[in-house]
């Protein structure tokens, strides 16, 4: 079995030294009309380069661009589609992070690629493969307000976002992405919507071409629908173990036909988990996973940690995973 150590999404865009604060400063200067959009772009490029360099230095096999350019996981995608406008702030799950809520005001349409340029840039500055990450149609739909009769039903909203994101998946695959991660955390809030959620996932899967699709779910317990997740047409299931005390045993017993992304390391707390505990969980599960590759990653993106702690988390993860490689 091939074990791949990766990041689950975001990476801090700031640090304690002045050279790690250029993006914050440039955005503040932009607000005072002392910097241009090109200046912001250059600062973002610089912080993407640093995020990738740190992931590689920590020893990851597969990196992300750290979602450095994302205002938040919702508006970065929804706000770039035609037919939306952006509203006020709302708490993101049970974190202390806030996102801008989109409002659907007109027919949704993707006029141009959303993430392809960002993905290309990340590849150009990375010595390791890059995994693009996007937020899925169900999560975007659940967090959108509606001012347009057409989208009053959640089902119509999920469909409309799925059409737009399927185009994005096809373009990312054409740009060379071998593994594309789709985050759908909102399904942990109410799995009564399972059929709508699953329809959105299937629409994306139809567009993936030769790329592999990873569905990542965090911020809640996935145990109630673990079996149903296995039936979805995706290649990898990313699971947040921090909310699911029974999940390790369950996977050890029921196994997994799909590749898993094991989020055993808490991406939201600075504490480094005891190595022996994490290793014991891997020992229990790895023999039961019937795929050629298994991914290990933090339970969530790392932006909810200070930069030095995020880096230490990744080093810790690599240290543990290395014992299981080959």
């Amino acid at each position: 079995m091939n074990l791949i150590v990766t990041n689950a999404g975001s990476y801090p865009r700031i640090g304690d030294t002045p050279e790690l604060q250029i993006l914050r400063q440039t955005l503040a200067r932009f607000d005072r009309q002392e910097a241009t959009e090109a200046d912001i772009r250059r600062a973002e490029d610089e912080m993407v380069r640093r995020a990738i360099a740190e992931q590689i230095e920590a020893g990851l096999d597969l990196v992300t661009d750290g979602q450095i350019r994302w205002y938040d996981p919702i508006s970065h995608i929804a706000g770039r589609l035609k037919g939306t406008k952006i509203n006020g702030l709302l708490r993101y799950f049970d974190t202390n992070f806030y996102f801008r809520q989109p409002i659907l005001v007109d027919r949704l349409a993707r006029e141009r690629p959303i993430l392809v340029e960002e993905y290309r840039y990340a590849c150009s500055v990375s010595a390791r493969p890059v995994k693009p990450v996007l937020t899925g149609p169900y999560t975007l739909a659940v967090f959108s307000l509606v001012e347009c009769a057409e989208y009053r039903d959640l089902e119509r909203r999920v469909e409309a976002y799925a059409v737009a994101l399927a185009e994005e998946i096809a373009d990312l695959a054409a740009a060379g992405a071998e593994l594309i991660q789709v985050d759908e955390p909102a399904i942990v809030l109410d799995d009564a919507d399972w059929d709508l959620f699953a329809a959105g996932v299937r629409a994306l899967a139809r567009a993936k071409g030769t790329a592999r699709l990873a569905l990542y779910i965090s911020f809640g317990d996935v145990s109630p629908f673990y079996e149903r997740l296995q039936a979805l047409p995706v290649d990898v299931l990313g699971l947040d173990f921090t909310y699911s005390p029974q999940l390790v045993e369950r996977i050890a017993i029921e196994g997994s036909a799909k590749a898993l992304g094991l989020g055993l390391i808490d991406g939201r707390n600075t504490k480094l988990e005891p190595e022996a505990e994490v290793a014991a969980a891997l020992e229990r599960m790895l023999p039961a996973i019937r795929s050629e590759v298994v991914y290990v990653n933090p339970s969530t993106g790392l932006e909810l940690l200070p930069r030095d702690r995020a880096f230490r988390k990744l080093q810790h993860l690599v240290r543990i995973a290395t014992r299981f490689k080959r």
Binding site: G15, D16, L27, Y98, F99, L304, P306, R307, R309
Partner: peptide, 17 residues
């Protein structure tokens, strides 16, 4: 007192440990 963590947009705070 930990390093900076983003709360939204371009706003950061130091989250205690």
């Amino acid at each position: 007192i930990g390093g900076l963590v983003r709360s939204y947009g371009n706003r950061y705070y130091r989250k205690p440990i």
